[in-house]
């Protein structure tokens, strides 16, 4: 839910004063800047935003954004983010994760998250390597590649995050680029505004360990699919079923031309709406603010439950 009361006025208000420890020239800086600009433009009060991170270089971003943050465990950013949103649907929830964090150790949560469709934004920092542990191959590193940090060539096929997101049921699937801050900011704004689970796969060079997927690699290859006529919107379930296979075909493109932009934007029932079918009052009251006791006495009374066993 976007709340526009008392918006902060300057972009800096969304940045903390914590000293940033990313390598100079790291793609993470562009992503941080784009996120801060997106929050500024959306004017969401800082206290209503929760940003979670996993473990890794990218997952340190919570410390640099001046909102509520949860720096979780390796692979668990998305799992925790969903619970935050379920616990308090009034919050704007963003989950940050690296490609190793999200697609390696935490991949099960992507599949499960797609099945729920919790209304949050999942930012995937995608650079092909595990930076914080000195550059081992991550699940998105292309087959056969051997960036300078690897001891051997990579024998595993890469995971395509967009394909995985589409297959799992993400209702908004996009790709952007850390050196195209304007596109990234706009894409993040669209993802945050989207009602449902949004994935933004962010192409991002690792200047220290990945000497293959560099700025020079990406700049000439990335093209905007929406500028070439792709319409990501699916207006109905039928439309969605037809759109997904086409979006998958687009997502699988890789080589001289690498697609970016929004691949799918499908508005359907979100998890909080679905939960209301089981718990009719869910979302009507704010669980967090609703007292569970009055002067220490429980608000709930289980007498009726006890009687059901007598």
């Amino acid at each position: 839910m976007l709340n526009t009361v008392n918006p902060p006025t300057k972009p800096q208000n969304y940045k903390t004063s914590v000293e940033i420890d990313w390598c100079p020239g790291c793609g993470d800086f562009g992503i941080l800047n784009a996120l801060v600009l997106a929050l500024q433009e959306l004017k969401i009060p800082n206290e209503n935003v929760v940003l979670t991170g996993g473990i890794g270089c990218s997952s340190k971003i919570p410390h640099y954004v001046n909102v509520n943050t949860m720096h979780t465990l390796h692979g668990r950013s998305l799992a925790q983010a969903q619970a935050v949103k379920i616990a308090n649907p009034r919050l704007e929830v963003i989950s940050a994760s690296g490609d190793g964090d999200g697609l390696g150790i935490g991949a099960a949560h992507i599949v499960a998250a797609g099945r729920r469709n919790v209304d949050l934004t999942y930012m995937l920092f995608d650079n092909g390597v595990y930076g914080l542990t000195k550059g081992q191959a991550s699940p998105t590193l292309p087959y056969g590649e051997m960036p300078k940090s690897l001891e051997t060539e990579n024998l595993k096929f890469p995971v395509n995050p967009l394909f995985l997101g589409l297959a799992s049921g993400f209702t908004f699937v996009a790709r952007s680029y850390s050196y195209n801050i304007k596109h990234l900011k706009e894409t993040l704004i669209r993802a945050i505004k989207h009602r449902g689970l949004a994935m933004v796969d962010i192409m991002q060079p690792c200047v220290t360990y990945n000497n293959i997927n560099t700025k020079e690699f990406y700049d000439p290859r990335l093209y905007d699919i929406e500028k070439e006529g792709w319409n990501p919107a699916a207006a109905s379930e039928n439309d969605y079923k037809q759109k997904v296979p086409q979006a998958v075909l687009k997502a699988l493109e890789w080589g001289d031309r690498i697609p970016m932009g929004v691949f799918l934007d499908y508005q359907t029932e979100t998890y909080d709406q679905k939960l209301q079918r089981l718990v009719p009052d869910y979302g009507k009251k704010n669980y967090v603010m609703e007292p569970i006791e009055t002067s220490g006495k429980p608000v709930n009374d289980v007498t009726e439950l006890m009687d059901s066993f007598c």
């Binding site: 949860m70 979780t72 465990l73 668990r76 799992a79 969903q82 619970a83 935050v84 308090n88």
Partner: peptide, 13 residues
């Protein structure tokens, strides 16, 4: 793993 992580996040919320 998700079960405990979700419980932790809900508690921190």
């Amino acid at each position: 793993i998700a079960a405990i992580n979700m419980a932790i996040a809900a508690a921190n919320t």
